[in-house]
Design a protein around this nucleic acid. Structure first.
Lengths: 335, 335
DNA sequence: CTGTTAGCGCTTTCAG
DNA sequence: CTGAAAGCGCTAACAG
């Protein structure tokens, strides 16, 4: 069996308390320090985190609740979260909610059972009731991407509505007036982005037209279908805003099946600058979210909650976005 | 604080042992059972897994070492692994190796420190030295997708070479002779698949030609570039085999940038049937791996190792693949 | 079937 | 600074 602190005790003749103190960075006489270090090396001693956790009631592990590990957005975020956490000496326990609120709730309980020190959640929806259990267990929670309905949890996110408006405004500035949108209608982010689209249009004195909106599921499939729908309109839009990565992917594929060219025949604006964007030709104009910062801020916020006491109120960090320019938007001649 | 087994003891007047036995599914007098269950409900008691783990030396958690959580192949597999594990009452701790052997090694140690009951590894490479540490700690390991160089670990995978040969054979049967390949040259799977390509060609009396092989990194970017390279050949291939998902994606995009049509002008054969395939038009012919089974078998194998004693020798499960037919392969007229 | 008694490996008072 | 002792919450013999 692995060496225990007791073996170190035998080896050094010191007491458990002293060794424990050393292990936790306390002050120990230099000579004792040397003895202990030697013994540790010889015995290949490593602290048993489980035992430590039992008494300290901390596991140095945070749970991450991802709505879907299959989504590339989740994957990217997980990477950043994982990296930050590792630097801070924390491990992470990732749970996949499979886009299913029931599984999500199970997972919350699982994480509570595992006595994680905190939870970072990419929730399935803005209904975050399942997280109340975590609160009851006094486990701090930080949300990413989607705030809870009642804003009772810390949250790191972007202003989806504003980001979308910004993108559409860009299209308007380039002379586009008939602007189509492909969006998801089942999610918080999708709805917000659709609102932002409306905001920008109204600002410019236009109204969103139902015919120019293809709303469906958050999927490559629907991106494909939605774009097909918009392209088959008698009066085609001159530009299309695709409000998330999967939709953009499907939409570009649909466009590629036609003889139409971007940006000559139609301009495109996407959302989320992930791997793909480097390879799509023409390079898409797109709204980019600061993924890395989102992950990092969330970890920071959580660690702060874990470390010090509780801030009284919940806190939201809203990160900025920008429109990254590619070659997919044509400048229309008209004033 | 949360209720402990001791509170149940007070409440029921029974002893710790009896309660513990009940908790672990042992036989208890009906009347006692009722008492205990009532107390549990009233006190909202839940076992402390940490404490239990300390004494049983089992955590009911398995670690998963993923070479890249950003890769969709990993994402899909993680989902299946997670689902199987959840059904078995196990949790999983996912670690992202970021395609970096150093981080991978750190992660192994992290998981050992967390006292996971077993490890499922999607290793960065076939050099699996870092996993020796797990073996030393007596933690069972099951590999997925990539066997270790010395075949010393259990492994669930496909026969990449045979799968590739099968795909190329299919193209040959459809009359293709000039068959190009886009593959990754830095990985085990890429190399195996390239070998399979050669096998099938030689079987048909042909030799792989260097000019028809675009080998590069495992990325969408290279898929795009590689396809461009093949298309610009004086004598274009009549069919192209893209040996993984990312490469296929990039390649299809490159093709879509040209006026060429599939399958009229060029036939395509892909690898890995993931989400995307449903939307690519024409539907790609492709080699499909049984992702779900891979995940499930890996869990099964691991749980078996965890449960019973150790099988003496390592075991490999090689799952079959098949060519799923789409619309991307033309039948050439020649004999 | 039930209760008593030891621990699992570590931290943490509290004296010294 | 160090040591002795108590205990985190649970399981696992062993008697009864």
């Amino acid at each position: 069996m692995a060496a225990t602190i007791r073996d170190i005790k035998e080896r050094t003749g010191l007491s458990l308390a002293t060794i424990s103190k050393y292990l936790n960075g306390g002050n120990v006489l230099p000579e004792n320090r040397i003895k202990i270090e030697a013994a540790i090396k010889e015995l290949h001693y490593e602290v048993n985190e489980i035992a430590r956790g039992l008494v300290t009631n901390r596991t140095r592990t945070v749970g991450v609740l991802a709505y879907s590990v299959e989504s590339i957005f989740n994957g990217t975020l997980l990477r950043h979260i994982g990296n930050s956490l590792r630097k801070a000496g924390y491990g992470l326990m990732i749970c996949d909610s499979c886009d299913d609120p029931k599984i999500e709730a199970e997972n919350v309980n699982f994480l509570i059972g595992k006595k994680v020190d905190g939870i970072i959640a990419l929730p399935v929806s803005t209904k975050t009731d399942c997280l109340k259990a975590a609160r009851k267990a006094k486990i701090p929670v930080v949300l990413i991407d989607r705030p809870s309905e009642d804003a009772s949890f810390d949250c790191v996110r972007i202003d989806n509505r504003r980001a979308a408006a910004q993108a559409v405004r860009f299209l308007l500035q380039n002379g586009h007036r008939r602007i189509g949108i492909i969006c998801s209608h089942s999610e918080y982010t999708g709805e917000e982005r659709y609102k932002g689209y409306g905001d920008a249009l109204r600002e410019a004195g236009a109204e969103p037209q139902e015919g120019l909106c293809a709303a469906g599921t958050h999927s490559i499939e629907f991106g494909f279908e939605g774009m097909g729908r918009l392209l088959s309109l008698k009066e085609r839009p001159t530009a299309v805003f695709m409000t998330n990565y999967e939709l953009a992917l499907g939409a570009v594929m649909a466009l590629n099946r036609t003889k139409l060219h971007c940006p000559e025949d139609i301009s495109l604006m996407g959302f989320d600058d992930l791997i793909m964007s480097h390879v799509i030709h023409p390079r898409l104009h797109m709204v980019v979210q600061p993924m890395k910062e989102m992950g990092e801020k969330a970890v920071e916020l959580l660690l702060e909650r874990i470390g010090s006491g509780q801030r009284e109120m919940a806190m939201e960090i809203v990160l900025g976005t920008r429109v990254s320019e590619g070659d997919s938007v044509a400048k229309l001649g008209e004033k």
